[in-house]
Amino acid sequence: MSRPRYVMTVDTKTCVGCNACVLACKSENGLPEQGYRDWIVTETTGAFPNLFQEIRSERCNHCDRSPCVSACPTGASYRQEDGIVLVDPAKCTGCKACIAACPYGARYVHPRGFVDKCTFCVHRLTAGKQPACVDICPTDSLTFGDLNDPRSAVSRLLKSRRHKTLLPEEGLLPHVFFLI
């Protein structure tokens, strides 16, 4: 069996942008007031009355080619073999090089001096649980799982639904997929 590759899918057809994911993340991870590991983007295009709208719950894309990891001078930013990109707060000096390198705006400086971002709730995964945002989502728009397992829910969704990633032109191979 191959090693897992953890990914998330976000269903823009069902997401209502309620922010439950944002707040569940904040309370699960005890984030500071100004710190957000996920956020909602509502994009409206067209002119009244011919409008199109897409709502996305966004977070770190856990890119295969993660510029934040390359930019990190101390090795605090790293990518696990399962694809999850993390910051070791003990090694992070808060230099913000990773913040400059990330085109997705996924990182912020924690008041305690280190850079923080989405971990896919890795502490929950090790306990056999789903990320907090996935568990709370009232519209069941978020799905997390192993892309290398063809039977996983994410694999099935990515096979059956049209999808996209953000800023594909950056060539970073992001691993949060938006079902459209």
Binding site: M1, R3, P4, S27, E28, N29, G30, Q80, E81, D82, I84, L86, D88, P89, A90, T119, V122, H123, L125, T126, A127, G128, K129, D146
Partner: peptide, 26 residues
């Protein structure tokens, strides 16, 4: 709850790397 989750389901995440990330204790 934790006991019930136990060993069997952990195997779902068998390939998960051991992580340096601290548990937020919530």
């Amino acid at each position: 709850g934790a006991a019930a989750v136990g060993s069997g389901l952990l195997s779902q995440w068998w390939g998960l790397d051991s992580s340096a990330m601290p548990d937020p204790q919530t």
